[in-house]
Design a protein around this nucleic acid. Structure first.
Lengths: 216, 216
DNA sequence: TCGGGTATGATCGTCTACGGTATTCCATCT
DNA sequence: AGATGGAATACCGTAGACGATCATACCCGA
């Protein structure tokens, strides 16, 4: 009963996604299918399947007969992503905290630890750990659509975090917030989880907005 | 500047989606790729792309090396879908009502009319009109992710509505609710839109729950 | 010099054909 | 009965070809 059976297009989906997140495939840039396929050592069918799914996720956009492009980032999208996260995630994490099994809690603990120890490596890795931590807080709710949605929003948000939040300072604050949030989650204090997560998301949004206003 | 340029896989995506919604492809049933492709008169490349996207949407599920299956319906999923809709849609429609242009309002008006006149045709058509009406209430917010998400949830919900809400009685009530909701929307009464839409969604959920408890 | 039309090249979207491989199912054997 | 083995089925991925379409550079005429 192992789930290690995965299709090629499944794995390519993740590989390309991470490449987009890490900025390896840049903003408004076109995806050259033949080039990318040979670079990945695969044929175009699994690649195109992965690209189609990434478009569905909102990371790519397809212009018929012109190909896939990395979805451009914009201030409006930041606002939209975070508005959606605020509508979904605090509630979902609060509920999950109340029904998490011991296994779930152990998984979340590990995710928290991984985020902790990764805190001083490069930003892209931290971002991945951060994503996994946030998902681990929601997953125990056994609501697949919700979890998937949270993951998707997290992924979309990650692009902006990686691109704009290099500055330190955020690290320390986020760490403190994560700690408090996770404590409340372990104590199954739904109200507190909801409140803290809401504040945490708002805090990140505020940082992002500040960064987005200044440069360029 | 017409946007009628669409790829084959794009159109197939919609065709197959509607077939799933209308129950033409049944619940836990496998999708025979070759058969479906020849039936649609296309090759497997665009079909597989469409299927990959439909999996991302939550209508299909892929078992590696065994193929795609129509995602089974379940009571838990109903609850989840409607919980998400309640978290997103009322707010989104309320906001959209406040920023809708005259064009947007005309579009919404047409969608309302179409739903109205279709009210006595078969349920599947009504469901499509219903979806389009709900989207038209949200679209003017110009928040692409939100709109796409609302559409997705609407699509997922539609399966259950089509499968379980054949009984009349719902028609009349839904019509009244739509009327009141649409009036508030046209008046840009955000609070009222939010309240009425929330009640409307809850009402549908209640009907669905009643139907799901009884049979089988 | 500049604008518009055209040729050209690159890339996409789709098709066809083929082979490997995983799964399923059934018959056979112990 | 249960295990083994093999055939059938369908999926997964590769390879190559081709027309359609878009972008660019070029050319020509005013």
């Amino acid at each position: 009963m192992s789930i290690v059976v995965r299709t090629l297009s499944d794995r390519v989906f993740e590989v390309v996604r991470e490449q987009i997140l890490k900025g390896r495939l840049r903003n408004g840039e076109p995806i050259r299918q033949d080039a990318l396929a040979t670079e990945l050592g695969i044929s175009k069918i699994p690649l195109r399947e992965a690209l189609a799914r990434l478009e569905q996720e909102g990371l790519l956009i397809n212009h018929p007969n012109r190909g896939y492009y990395v979805q451009a980032m914009s201030r409006e999208q930041v606002d939209e992503i975070y508005a959606l996260r605020l509508s979904i995630e605090p509630q979902a994490a609060a509920y999950a905290s109340s029904v998490a099994t011991d296994d779930d809690r152990a998984v979340a603990m590990r995710a928290f630890g991984a985020l902790d120890t990764a805190a001083h490596s490069n930003l892209a890795d931290v971002a991945v750990r951060n994503r996994e931590f946030h998902i681990a807080l929601v997953e125990p709710g056994r609501r697949p659509l919700t979890t998937q949605l949270v993951e998707r929003l997290e992924v979309l948000a990650e692009r902006y975090v990686i691109a704009h939040l290099e500055p330190a300072g955020r690290d320390a604050r986020a760490h403190i917030e994560h700690q408090a949030l996770f404590n409340a989650w372990l104590e199954r204090d739904k109200r507190k989880v909801e409140k803290l997560l809401k504040e945490h998301i708002q805090g990140t949004l505020k940082d992002l907005r500040a960064q987005l206003k200044a440069p360029d």
